[in-house]
Design a protein around this nucleic acid. Structure first.
Length: 197
DNA sequence: CTTAGGATCGCCT
DNA sequence: GGCGATCCTAAGC
């Protein structure tokens, strides 16, 4: 690293994850990492990577008011609407202005289960955070969380413990670039939105 | 267990 | 005017 160079980037390391890296590497590194919002959360078991030159990404068409956080500095939150109804939580990657991120698709809930149940209206732990829309609802995410740093309240991240066994597969629910294997998941987890094969 | 349809909003062509 | 990084419910086999 060359700190005197104009192109040198800050490490942006949170919970052992270098958010300055490319989105696929970050998505893989996030499996097993703990995430909490206001004390409610758990262990990340499923992610998907998105990048600027990626027809499936919300950042593909360039910066807009809506995806501004995605083009901000890495290590922050980006919140987007899905199908006009759900809030999806992304973690920004690369460097400011690039427009890359990782979609948090599923958690294994460990803390604040009762809060999640109240927000989600279901009891089964497997249905609390198993899908991007469910994660957003269970954690109480909305557009006001755009641009929040991941290493400051209400957010908190914790490094993963033992090295997780990470599975890879095609991303879900998209029509463009559907063959790119940028979906990652914790092997054997019962909290995936859908199984890997 | 699989399939189908509706809800609902911002940005695109 | 159409579509999407989804979820839920209901109905059919």
């Amino acid at each position: 690293m060359d700190a005197s160079s104009a192109t040198a980037r800050t490490a942006h390391v949170v919970a052992g994850v270098d958010f300055g890296a490319d989105s696929a590497a970050v998505a893989q590194a996030l499996i097993g990492v703990g995430v909490w919002v206001g004390g409610v959360g758990g262990r990340i078991v499923e992610t998907e990577a998105y990048d600027r030159d990626d027809p499936a990404s919300h950042s593909f068409a360039g910066p807009t008011a809506r995806n501004a956080a995605m083009f901000g500095p890495p290590g922050r939150a980006d919140v987007s609407r899905s199908y006009g109804i759900h809030w999806c939580l992304n973690f920004v990657c690369r460097e400011a202005g690039h427009g890359a991120g990782v979609l948090i698709r599923a958690l294994e809930p460990t803390d604040g289960l009762d809060t999640m149940r109240a927000r989600r209206g279901v009891d089964d732990p497997r249905l609390l955070c198993s899908g991007p829309g469910r994660v957003g609802q269970a954690l109480g995410i909305d557009a006001s969380f755009n641009g929040f740093a991941l290493d400051a309240p209400p957010f908190a991240l914790a490094p993963r413990g033992a090295n997780a066994v990470v599975l890879t597969g095609p991303r879900i629910g998209i029509s463009r670039a559907a063959d790119v294997p940028w979906r990652f998941g914790a092997a054997g987890s019962r909290f995936l939105s859908r199984p890997f094969r």
